[in-house]
Write a protein that binds this DNA or RNA. Structure first.
Length: 484
RNA sequence: CGGGACGUGGCGCAGCCUGGUAGCGCACAUGCUUGGGGUGCAUGGGGUCGGCGGUUCAAAUCCGCCCGUCCCGACCA
């Protein structure tokens, strides 16, 4: 096929138009599709398989940390939502309401949950009586509805999937420890499973969760230089326990309000996988979360059905028995070249080509998705080489993303430099800040950048430099960025 | 929600300015051919032009309103 025509089939180059590139990958790799309802998407089988792997990895860790799963109702009475003032104020602009059931007008309208603190708080008040009931460590996997004005597949949709943990503790210290333990759990998950390095820290007060006393977050850098929040962990203090009257009798027989946390990670992480690892050929999934880790493509020439196909099928069977997610594409209607491109688009980490020449030589050609490097391996040693290669790919993707993140964290001590970086290079800018909300708001208006995180480590965060924007006494070094 | 662009078979587009009832590439179906980077040829099916309304003998084309998508902002996981 002529090059000019081949161009037609390609997706828009990442460097050409990042947003277009993103949307095209989502559709061509069949991760998701639009529906007739604004902002609501279908997560297609290939996208959902990624989500299932994310779920497995997270669920395992959440349970290993002592939590159990439960399920709370989709609907929340309006009066519950109103109990915590800051909470209702923060969420009311984006709540969907149910006002009619069947043919009957409801006495009190029901919110479709934008998050579950309110309904869970109500139930916790019923369940918790004594210090012996604590801690309560419950997580739920659920769908959430937030009536967003601007939507993008995975990054911001009207309905999305997530897990939300809601815990109760005896003391403030325990609550804070839980919040930070989850932050670390998320960080480790992002790096180990998603191969996405993150910056962690606390949010400024203006960016914190509505109703929390402190919000911690993980921020990743997309390859267009914009930041994306990967997850949050909130220390709720006693805001909700006081609003919902969640009290327990402590070890000294005094009534106390519990200390709570909540934390969540969403289907947005799939968007991050696309934007961190994807390239102009399509997706590049890290092996640990890839729906299919190895795709075997038999080279269909001559009597390939008698010679190549059995060898290819045997190879797949061997890989499966080794515990790998391997598949074969033996369809006759597509050519090998077509299949190569297709699985590159879909992000399959490793492709194995087996043709007549290979069968004769007792070998196979392995092609990495991340580097597109090829190597020839004896069929007999696939069982050893493939897992090792997948580990290399996993590590390679993380290393590449980490190098990009580190190369795009820049320092700015003055506002001119700060603006220049955001305008011309993007990425994160580490800069001294005074801690004043008005100053933060001004920076946001003037540069479109927000404080993504303030590092937790005092050695990293403390500064004696003046605020880069207003010149007042600096309070902390903060990471700023334009974000999704 | 403000500013901009766009909306024509499944996808990408041409036609619209200068109204006359729809065309191309890909995809799809069938057959042959080919097959180590999206094979080639032939035949065929599928759209009334985002929706509603208006102007007109006649609207994809002109006008109005609405809806949706994308981009840039304000809001957010």
């Amino acid at each position: 096929m002529k090059d000019a025509e081949r161009q037609v089939k390609r997706i828009t180059a990442k460097s050409d138009d990042f947003s277009k590139w993103y949307v095209e990958i989502v559709q061509k790799a069949e991760l998701a599709d639009y529906t007739p309802m604004k902002g609501m998407m279908v997560i297609r089988p290939h996208g959902y398989a990624v989500w299932e792997n994310i779920q497995k990895g997270l669920d395992l860790r959440i349970k290993a940390a002592g939590h159990v799963n439960a399920y709370f109702p989709l609907f929340i009475p309006e009066s519950f939502l109103k109990k915590e003032a800051e909470h209702v104020q923060g969420f009311s602009p984006e709540v969907a309401w149910v006002t009619v059931g069947g043919k009957e007008e409801l006495e009190e309208r029901l919110a479709v949950r934008p998050t579950s603190e309110a309904i869970i708080g109500h139930m916790y008040a019923k369940w918790i009586k004594s210090w012996r009931d604590l801690p309560v460590l419950i997580n739920q996997w659920a769908n959430i509805v937030r009536w967003e004005k601007v939507t993008r597949p995975f990054l911001r949709t009207t309905e999305f999937l997530w897990q939300e943990g809601h815990t109760c503790h005896e003391t403030a210290e325990e609550g804070e420890a839980e919040t930070l333990a989850i932050l670390e759990l998320y960080r480790e998950f992002c790096e180990t499973e998603l191969a996405i390095p993150v910056l962690t820290g606390r949010k400024s007060l203006s960016e914190k969760f509505a109703g929390a006393s402190m919000t911690y977050a993980l921020e990743a850098l997309m390859s267009d230089g914009k930041a994306l929040q990967m997850g949050t962990s909130h220390n709720l203090g006693q805001h909700f326990s006081k609003a919902f009257d969640i009290k327990f009798e402590d070890r000294n027989q005094t009534l106390q309000y519990v200390w709570q946390t909540s934390w969540g990670m969403t289907t947005r992480t799939i968007g991050a996988l696309i934007m961190v690892h994807g390239d102009d050929s399509g997706l590049r999934f890290p092996p640990r979360i890839a729906p299919v880790q190895v795709m075997v493509v038999p080279i269909s020439i001559g009597d390939w059905k008698e010679t190549v196909l059995p060898a290819a099928a045997a190879a797949v069977e061997g890989l499966r028995q080794a515990g790998l997610r391997a598949a074969i594409d033996a369809r006759e209607e597509s050519t090998p070249g077509w299949k190569f491109s297709e699985y590159e688009m879909r992000g399959v980490p490793l492709r194995i080509e087996i043709g007549p020449r290979d069968v004769k030589a007792g070998q196979a050609v392995l092609v990495r998705r991340d580097t597109k490097a090829k190597e020839t391996v004896p069929l007999a040693s696939l069982g050893a080489r493939v897992p090792a290669l997948l580990d290399e790919i996993q590590a390679g993707l993380l290393a590449q993303a980490r190098a990009f993140l580190e190369a795009n964290i820049r320092e700015a001590d003055d506002y001119a430099r700060f603006k220049d970086i955001l305008e011309n290079q993007r990425g994160f800018v580490r800069a001294p800040w005074c801690g004043d909300e008005a100053c933060e708001a001004r920076i946001k208006t003037e540069t479109m950048a927000t404080i993504r995180v303030i590092p937790l480590d005092d050695r990293q965060a403390l500064t004696d430099k003046p605020c880069m924007a207003c010149g007042a006494k600096g309070q902390a070094l903060a990471y700023f960025a334009r974000s999704y």
